[in-house]
Amino acid sequence: MEMFGFDDYMRKIARKHGIDLNKANIQDAIDHRDERQEQESIKFTKENNKVKRKRMFDSSVVSDPIILSKTFDDFNITDKIQKSEFDKARSIADRILNGEKGNFTFSGTPGAGKTLSAVSILNKIQHSDSSLTCYFASVSMLAQMNKDSIQYPEIKTDFINAERCIKQCDILVLDDLGSETSFQKNIKEASDYQQAMLFRLADYRAENKNKVNIVTTNNTSKELKRIYNGKIYDRLIASNFDNVIKFTSKDCRMF
């Protein structure tokens, strides 16, 4: 009599999967199958999330895509000040990976490593086992896209996609906040339009307490408060001293 009613063909299939029907309990076989299917499902989900995370990150609004490949290995540290800034940035990356949320602000002179630090944080998270999604947006490019989207349908589509990513991503870098005003002839008019966009995005992320915002800027706090409405400032700029890095070192970039 065939054990469990299995014929030779089914026994062959069972042996292929490492199951000896002459010894196995049918429930053990079922449990083994279910466990294997669950592991395969988890693996598929992780791979699928990895692809989605990469797709979002690669769609970032940036003038030079090569910037998105930069990591902490690209720092050229030559003094104690740079080392201190570098260590703080790496610490922030670890804090975010450990679940910390909120606003972080990197301010200081041009070329001191603010953008490099922010991108390095994103890449450390991207290359980890975390499921956190990352997105980088140049504020000046975003503002220009927002303005051009009124006239050009194809740019409007790009801007809508960028806005969706900004709202959905777990960790957002807004790069060079404040610089977009210097590119406008009529600063007040452009500023009003830009502020409406920034407030909409900042307000959405502020309502979702599980978000991380990293802002880089060449401006001081006083200057940012003059450029933007206080509601934008409060929603994007870090109020916790431990979440602020003031870059005062010389250029530490290798690109």
Results as ranks from 00 to 15, higher is better:
E2N: 13
G5P: 01
G5Y: 01
F6N: 06
D7P: 04
H17R: 14
G18I: 06
K23R: 07
D28P: 00
H32N: 12
Q37M: 05
T45G: 11
K50Y: 08
R53C: 01
R53G: 00
F57W: 13
D64R: 12
I67E: 08
I67M: 12
L68H: 10
I81D: 09
K83F: 14
F86M: 04
S91P: 10
D94Y: 12
L97Q: 12
G99Y: 01
E100T: 00
F104E: 02
G108W: 05
G113C: 06
G113R: 14
L122K: 08
N123A: 03
I125M: 02
S128N: 03
D129Y: 09
Y135V: 02
S138I: 01
M145W: 10
D148R: 10
D148C: 06
Q151L: 09
P153D: 02
I155T: 13
K156G: 09
D158Q: 15
F159K: 14
F159D: 08
C165W: 08
D175K: 00
D176K: 00
L177T: 03
F183S: 15
F183Y: 15
E189R: 15
Y193I: 14
Y193K: 11
Y193R: 14
M197S: 07
F199A: 10
F199S: 05
A206H: 11
E207I: 04
V215H: 03
N218Y: 08
K225M: 10
I227W: 08
N229F: 05
K231E: 14
I232L: 06
Y233T: 03
S239H: 11
F241H: 13
D242F: 05
N243Q: 03
D251G: 11
C252H: 13
R253W: 13
